[in-house]
Design a protein around this nucleic acid. Sequence first.
DNA 1: TTGTGTGAATCCCTTCACAGCG
DNA 2: CGCTGTGAAGGGATTCACACAA
Lengths: 202, 202
Amino acid sequence: MRRLSHYLRALEGFDRNGGGTVSSEELASKGHTTAAQVRKDLSHFGSFGKRGLGYGVSELVDRLRAILGVDRAWRVVLVGAGRIGSALFEYPDFKARGYDCVAVLDSDPHKIGAKWGNTTIRDTAELEAVVVREQIDLVVLAVPAVAAQEVTDRAVRAGIKGILNFAPVRLKVPAQVPVEDVNLVMELEALSFRITRGGASE
Amino acid sequence: MRRLSHYLRALEGFDRNGGGTVSSEELASKGHTTAAQVRKDLSHFGSFGKRGLGYGVSELVDRLRAILGVDRAWRVVLVGAGRIGSALFEYPDFKARGYDCVAVLDSDPHKIGAKWGNTTIRDTAELEAVVVREQIDLVVLAVPAVAAQEVTDRAVRAGIKGILNFAPVRLKVPAQVPVEDVNLVMELEALSFRITRGGASE
DNA sequence: TTGTGTGAATCCCTTCACAGCG
DNA sequence: CGCTGTGAAGGGATTCACACAA
């Protein structure tokens, strides 16, 4: 659920200590939904929340982190050390949120062996070995479209748990392996669509 | 509508020339929806499609491009010449799809004046002037979270038509200015959420 | 016969409204 | 009282099913 991430983000504005509380109203005002929506969303996962008071900030943060699965560290391998890969690798929020990029792979001989910080770029051929040895959970796919499916197949066979895909292709994966697609062109098209047709409602 | 972009993408696999046709069934199989869904989506915008035959590939492409507003060129300014900005600037698909990055701005004195290809990075202070002089349609916001709202306000006042926002903040904009948010951490959280709870249904 | 276009049925998500607990 | 939790109502989107055109 995307909104849960928003709630978690919104809660960072509040003090975790001191037993403070937030109402569904307050959470709704950030994160642009309604109070009823917030309550429904949260009630799906149990009923923590004090009637007449609101939700305990600290408890709610813990709950949301558990629900979203960010109460642990995720081990990530980045495949594709191009521009997008480099941007992602440096993105400070990833590590801060528990996504730990422990390996970078590329198939370009000119890049293999180079160092990013103290991470050495290795050959994509080592993918399976890296996944197993480094106990990788997630693959961030930042390779050209033509290579994406092959890398995916190999990662899946090696036992990966999920894929964040930047390649503009629909990956074929077994049902139990979730894929999230990020397609920048489609985002721009969504913009021009909304501009072209007036109604800018999000 | 996000699915329309998918249809357009799927159609690239077919030959535009030669008066070929596609059925809703074929379009559905790529783009992972149902045939009924495809027909409903398209019927919203008129009924072009020959019963018993399918849709003319060439005509459908034209229609979709018109609907999505990609039958014209969009003039884009990139604000923020960091890692993400650089990745976006080099992203070959943007220009190919009609999104033309005609200016790059940054507020870091070390970057101002540098050249990317034959585009010179200019001072973010020039934003308003650039928007007007270069007849900019869209802003791609790749600045730190703290700077995002200020840049947004200025771009909106200068008459921008839409914003693609990479900063992890919810921008306040007038209702008629559409914003598309890209939040990489939220994508990863969506992944870990789905992994944590089993059901990987997209 | 084939595959679109579309009302009708269905499902799911959001909003409403309020009972009930602190 | 104030605010949560939740059944009920409402609305929008998906799916079904079939008349109809090529």
